[in-house]
Design a protein around this nucleic acid. Structure first.
Length: 206
DNA sequence: CGGCCGATCAGCT
DNA sequence: GCTGATCGGCCGA
């Protein structure tokens, strides 16, 4: 069952936690990839100095974050990688959840095709925001994509989420690589599933 | 395994 | 002209 619009109209911190353990479905050229979300970060503009839309900064890039919840926000980072965010909250409230790491559930052969890495460690395929975009073939064309109605990319409920006790395993920490965000670097707005080996290995100063 | 470093360019200012 | 919500290769331990 995919999530409907109401699910996304929540604030980013709450949704960052609710998304953990849920599935992302990616369909392209008749192929289907399903992954489980294991690490997220909340960006709570306009007061959040770590958020691209801090101080209601509205540009061509950040425009997507001002949409109502349920759309994708995809941007290019370091000139070479994409990052996938899920826009949350009401229209004109620029909040989003960054998907930082996922665990492959099905379509692993397509993920490997998309990644082409030397390492044989499966977790290296999707344990970072840029890596998972490459793995799911996500690019700028999916910016502003409607996750509520679209068939190529959407979030689906993991029916075993209670059985997997995801809620009990949620850990929180500071967000990664936002040293410029002053007091907002200290916010514990990064969430991940404790013990999951697909969580990104980035320095956790917590 | 961990730290360092270069790659590479859109999106700002 | 500068910077970044990153990654992978290399090198030393």
């Amino acid at each position: 069952m995919r999530f409907s619009k109401e699910f996304y109209l929540d604030n980013a911190v709450s949704l960052a936690k609710k998304l953990l353990g849920q599935y992302i479905v990616r369909r392209i050229d008749g192929k289907e990839i399903i992954v489980k979300i294991v690490e997220t970060e909340a960006y709570v503009g306009p007061e959040d100095k770590g958020c691209h839309a801090y101080n209601n900064r509205r540009t061509k890039r950040t425009e997507s974050m001002f949409l109502e919840g349920g759309y994708a926000y995809v941007y290019i980072i370091y000139g070479m990688y994409y990052c996938l965010n899920i826009v949350t909250a009401k229209e004109d409230k620029p909040e989003a959840v960054l998907i930082r790491a996922v665990e492959p559930i099905s379509g692993l052969e397509y993920i490997k095709e998309n990644r082409k890495i030397k390492s044989t460690k499966i977790e290296e395929l999707t344990n970072g925001p840029g890596k998972l975009c490459k793995a799911l073939n996500i690019n700028k064309s999916l910016d502003k994509y409607n996750l509520v109605t679209g068939e190529e990319l959407f979030v689906m409920k993991n029916e075993n989420i209670e059985k997997e006790k995801v809620v009990e395993k949620i850990a929180e920490s500071k967000r990664i690589n936002i040293d410029y965000a002053e007091e907002y670097t200290e916010k514990l707005w990064r969430f991940y599933i404790k013990g999951n080996k697909f969580v990104s290995k980035n320095k956790v100063k917590n």
